[in-house]
Design a protein around this nucleic acid. Structure first.
Lengths: 124, 124
DNA sequence: CATCGATATTCCCATTCGGACATATCGAGG
DNA sequence: CCTCGATATGTCCGAATGGGAATATCGATG
């Protein structure tokens, strides 16, 4: 049985593709944000309800896809853990900004579609 | 070997989720548009480079997910083929409008990210 | 130098996804 | 009533996805 993720209504996916090898979307952004917050890939993965492996693969994709690493990780010792590089912080910030701008820009249309949808659903 | 689809840069995926059972994204929108243009599910599928079955599954999802059918299809005779219902046309139009509004809203950020990306890629 | 916590990496396996293919169905028209 | 073109569906199979577990690695610290 699949995990029952809560459904995010309205603007649910905004993906920006910068090249053949790199894009940033909601999942990657959330992961980056959680890494920044927790300072750990494994903890971020846990909070997102995904396996460490999956999170690690995503981090790889982020780092290798972009020209420079967005997430920096070090193992061993006191400094172990992960954090965002300055490029990573900028990418994340820009993405959040785009999400907000998009929400503002399409709010009315979403409302209209929602209304149409509700309308159609009620009348059997 | 997987099909080499051309990569769409910039805003590549905009998905609007209206309920647990329905969302509209770029693939579905393109399919609807091609159905409207060609008057045929199979022809639309061919142009999108996907199997008829996949297109049919998508049409099912569209029709069952939304309260009312968005795509109408009839088989046999002269009138055979498929077309959009008025609800389908409205959904498609709204979606295209949202795409445009989004592009306008995030253009600058995309540029900035693109520049950052290019910058990072060049310096080895 | 043993421990600890977190990253890094590789196998193995179940599930899902999707394509190819095969039919079945339908309805106008010859 | 047979053909034609397009929709409607099911089956089979290989590819891709993703999880879980098992290891390996690293470095500060006691």
């Amino acid at each position: 049985m699949a995990k029952a993720r809560p459904v995010k209504l309205g603007l649910s996916h905004l993906r920006i593709t910068l090249s053949e090898n790199f894009y940033i979307g909601p999942g990657r952004a959330d992961l980056m944000e959680l890494i920044a917050e927790t300072g750990s890939i494994s903890e971020a993965a846990k909070r997102m309800g995904m396996s460490y492996k999956r999170a690690w693969v995503l981090v790889q994709a982020l780092n290798e896809g972009f020209g420079a690493p967005l997430v920096e990780a070090s193992r061993g010792g006191t400094a172990q853990g992960a954090s965002l590089t300055s490029a990573g912080r900028e990418v994340l910030e820009r993405y959040r900004g785009m999400q907000e701008a998009t929400r503002r820009a399409i709010g009315r249309d979403v409302e209209a579609l929602s209304a149409l949808h509700a309308d159609m659903s009620t009348r059997k």
